[in-house]
């Protein structure tokens, strides 16, 4: 029996994983969510910004990791549009512009926001450091035109925006090392306030920056998206995803426990 469990075909585990994701997707459940301090800090910061403020959102995640940052982007953009906060979108990754542009358009349409007045998408420019540093002196020196090929200086909401001095917050939605780059080069060099919404894989490495205040807030993966949705009182993909993930988490915890019980029994038998 023990041998059988230990040598179980990995495809059995694959089927179990598939089932614990499919079942709650078909029959969703809703569990209460506790909001963590880093997410609340970000929410509170945006909440205190006056109407007409500007935040920049860097969509630094690719199609391979869009599951978590997209609900975050939706929640934050919805919050900003409802408060009259303007959004400048851009990306440091070459495989993201179409994704980010489509997402901004969609959320803006849902919130009756107007391109060029309430939000703009600058697009992508190669060279992470050069882009971050270049925008610190003059955004239009890096993005002379936006993603839709409109001259940035002629876009109404960009009229009074030259560099980071006019940006109240930079939110990096990231799946890689871009948040560190924003902290090191935009926050340290130009003093722009940074917050992040990151995929769960890189959450742990953000905490030293959170404690020092180099990050003013942090949305950790699906949990962060769900927490922000709770604060907005608008459950969305983050809440659904987090509840669905519960079952798969329980399965994996169960598998780890089972694997260890079998391991210790076997070790005892072998003396």
């Amino acid at each position: 029996m023990l041998e059988k469990i230990m040598n179980m075909d990995r495809r059995v585990i694959f089927i179990l994983v598939a089932l614990v994701v499919i079942f709650p997707t078909l029959v969703p459940v809703r569990m209460p969510i506790t909001v963590s301090e880093p997410t609340r800090n970000l929410y509170d910061f945006i909440e205190t910004l006056p109407s007409g403020s500007t935040i920049m959102i860097a969509f630094d995640y690719g199609p391979s990791s869009l599951a978590e940052p997209e609900p975050m982007a939706k929640a934050v953009m919805q919050h900003c549009f409802s408060k009259g906060i303007k959004i400048i979108g851009m990306t440091l990754l070459p495989n993201t512009p179409t994704l980010a542009h489509k997402l901004m358009r969609k959320i803006a349409a849902e919130n009756n926001a107007v391109y060029g007045e309430d939000y703009v998408f600058l697009g992508y420019r190669p060279g992470t450091l050069q882009v971050i540093l270049g925008m610190g002196t003059d955004i239009s020196s890096v993005f002379e035109t936006d993603y839709e090929n409109k001259t940035v200086d002629e876009i109404p909401m960009m009229e009074n925006i030259t560099n980071y001095d006019q940006i109240d917050l930079l939110l990096d939605l990231a799946s890689g090392s871009t948040t560190e780059a924003w902290i090191i080069y935009a926050n340290t060099r130009y003093g722009v306030k940074i917050a992040a919404g990151v995929t769960a894989v890189i959450i742990a490495q953000m905490y030293p920056y959170l404690q020092t205040g180099q990050l003013i807030g942090l949305m950790p993966g699906y949990l962060g998206a769900a927490e922000y949705e709770k604060l907005l009182n608008a459950p969305g993909d983050g809440t659904i995803g987090l509840n669905t993930a519960t079952y798969a988490h329980l399965l994996i915890i169960g598998l780890v426990i089972l694997g260890n019980i079998a391991f210790f029994i076997q070790r005892r038998r072998e003396g």
């Binding site: 994701v21 990791s65 769960a200 959450i203 699906y222 949990l223 995803g241 993930a245 798969a248 988490h249």
Partner: peptide
């Protein structure tokens, strides 16, 4: 802590794709 969070990250990707297939 990184591993615990990575589980969440990987599952999120799967949930997203299953959501696409089913919905």
């Amino acid at each position: 802590a990184a591993f615990g969070n990575t589980v969440m990250g990987r599952l999120a990707l799967l949930i997203h794709r299953v959501g696409f297939l089913l919905n």
